[in-house]
Design a protein around this nucleic acid. Structure first.
Length: 562
RNA sequence: GGCCCCGUAGUUCAAUGGAUAGAAUAGAAGUUUCCUAAACUUUAGAUGCAAGUUCGAUUCUUGCCGGGGCCA
């Protein structure tokens, strides 16, 4: 890449001028601000100790050396401690040529490394909601970025298909279901099961209220309400493998999976492998034994097993209960090990909400103490909650934004805007449907991805369905117009306007655009290492914005279009 | 109580320790013979507070004040 070449040249300049070696990694190069001349800026300030000269003189020396010795640097200027470098036309021509002839532009060759990306991780007792959408889009986007960077990526989904929550749905179905099915109810399977989960909660609350009215303490009532006891009993039966219970569990989960599959298909998201917690929840106990053997864990008098992480700034953590039953971290250790066994990765990304920051810190620290060679490659892609203007989403208060509903709303809005603007009069119904989906999904994905993942974000339904401004459809629209130029260039036979060799005739804005494009690719490469879809989103947006800004000043086809 | 994350225009978001803190949206004023006006141009508007580190701090450190989370 161009940037690397410039850095190498700067390094050469320091070697030759000051007999000092600076590595390419430590050289900081940034795009020149648009109010100054130049394309790349090298900040001299940090190197004044080496040059032992003032900023202006240092910049001039380096600039002169570069112009004399690096043929792709055509000129330079120094403002205070900023050395602004201009890249020669020939270099742009070469760069653009290599881009236009490279079908794999932006995609790096395989690097031989495996990375597993776990995301989505739904519970099977209710449908996906807005929070899951942020998770899914982050996971999917990260996977794509990593794949484009040459990693062998395996996308996995660990479904939480067991536990007290699904028993609650099962119980309510048993009582109130009357043999209902998704077909009969005309509901997606996940929505049907979610309905019974809500039903359970209503009954449970009713029972608590009755108990409290009869004089029972509220905490006690919560523990002793008949519904919750029945749910616990059902979980126990499930764990014992009771046939009837397992059959019911399979039936309901089957419906939920069908519903999820539909939602994933709508979102355009797929997985290479599914894990079920029902298959992994017993894992990890052998690792506890191993940890005891290696003296990483210690057993207390009551038989419980602990790990001491005070050296790493954490506290002591329980890894196995005194009665020998597992805690969350136990199964996560086991699942981690199994995942690595299935797909021996160098890196493994967990896309999980930030309420589990501490949990993953603990998990990774344990795996390291156990001497797993892959432990350094474990990464928690932590993201913040999605808030609504009314505040936090709460399922019990019915303020949850359902994923299917939201997706449909986006598609409907796309249709409404598109028809109002009269954009697609020559399209048939199928084509236009594809278009609405592309627009609606683009808007939603961009809206959720443009925010720094770790930050809590606000989802305003009104704004999210707007297609103007800093949105996905803005970028899609710009792309459509760029494509139109290329199309017309071919039909009008003025394609030389787009011939790389004509780059010398392009105006400043156009060259800027090309510059942005090359910059975009290097950002693609760097940001992938930092798992940052938000950075990618910003670059694409900037590019589209630059394009829209300059096109009105230089309409290329003005003359040919009479 | 201990630990973790976040405080930037009215609002929603940007800004590897660098130049005059960028966008979008809402407000005001404009632009359709044009590669599709889902666009473009102009205008006004912000770093919670207080110290410290240094050539330079939205960014790093400490304290305080707010918001959220985790652990009991």
């Amino acid at each position: 890449m161009l940037e690397i070449e410039i850095k190498e040249a700067i390094s050469g300049a320091f070697k030759s001028l000051f007999d000092h070696t600076i590595s390419i990694e430590e050289i900081s190069l940034q795009p020149t601000r648009k109010e100054f001349d130049g394309k790349y800026t090298f900040v001299i300030f940090p190197y004044l100790k080496i040059t032992k000269l003032n900023p202006e003189v240092s910049g001039k020396l380096v600039g002169d050396w570069l112009v004399a010795n690096a043929d792709f640097i055509s000129s330079y200027n120094v403002v205070k401690g900023f050395l602004n470098l201009e890249v020669s036309d020939q270099k742009w021509i070469d760069t653009l040529s290599s881009i236009s002839t490279n079908d794999e532009f932006g995609i790096l060759p395989a690097n031989g490394q495996k990375v597993m990306v776990e995301f989505s991780s739904p519970n099977t007792n209710k449908p996906l909601h807005l929070g899951h959408l942020r998770n899914n889009f982050l996971g999917d986007s990260t996977s794509r970025i990593l794949a484009a960077n040459g990693y062998n990526v395996m996308k996995v989904n660990l479904v939480n298909d067991r536990g007290i929550h699904i028993c609650k749905s099962m119980l309510a179905y048993q009582r109130f279901g009357n043999g209902e099915t998704p077909e009969k109810a005309g509901l997606k399977g996940d929505h049907l099961v979610g309905k019974f989960y809500v039903k359970f909660d209503q009954e449970y609350k009713k029972e608590i209220n009755e108990l409290v009215e009869s004089g029972v303490e509220i905490e006690k009532a919560k523990k002793e309400a008949p519904s919750i006891l029945a749910a616990q009993e059902m979980l126990k039966k499930w764990e014992e493998g009771d046939q009837e219970t397992v059959a019911l569990w399979e039936k309901l989960n089957g419906w939920v999976y069908e519903g999820f599959d539909q939602t994933y298909a709508t979102m355009g998201i797929s997985f290479d492998k599914m894990y079920q917690e029902s298959q992994t929840y017993l894992l990890g106990k052998d690792i506890v034994d191993e940890g005891l053997e290696k003296n990483v864990f210690l057993k207390k008098d009551d038989g419980s097993v602990w790990v001491d992480l005070t050296d790493d700034g954490m506290d002591q953590k329980l890894v196995l209960r005194g009665d020998g039953t597992a805690v969350y971290i136990t199964q996560d250790m086991g699942t981690c090990e199994r995942k690595h066994g299935d797909f021996p990765f160098e890196k493994s990304v967990y896309v999980v909400g930030n309420e589990q920051d501490y949990h993953f810190k603990v998990l990774f620290s344990i795996m390291k103490k156990l001497g797993r060679n892959y432990a350094d490659g474990l990464y928690h892609l932590s993201y913040g909650m999605v808030d609504l203007p009314s505040g936090k989403m709460k399922s019990r208060e019915g303020t949850v934004v359902d994923a299917d509903d939201l997706l449909q709303e986006m598609f409907d809005t796309a249709e409404k805007h598109t028809t109002e603007l009269g954009k697609i009069e020559d399209m048939d119904a199928d084509e236009s449907k594809v278009l609405y989906k592309m627009l609606g999904l683009g808007a939603l994905k961009y809206f959720l991805l443009k925010v720094d993942p770790k930050k809590r974000m606000l989802f305003n339904p009104q704004e999210s369905i707007e297609f103007q401004g800093h949105t996905g459809p803005f970028i899609q629209y710009s792309h459509a117009r760029i494509s139109a130029i290329v199309r017309r260039a071919k039909t009008l036979e003025v394609s030389e306007s787009f011939n790389p060799s004509a780059v010398g005739d392009l105006n400043q804005r156009e060259v800027d655009l090309i510059f942005r494009l090359t910059n975009y690719v290097s950002a693609l490469q760097e940001s992938a290492e930092e798992y940052s879809p938000a950075v990618m989103a910003q670059y694409v947006y900037d590019l589209a914005k630059d394009y829209n800004g300059f096109y009105q000043e230089v309409p290329i086809f003005k003359e040919d279009n009479k």
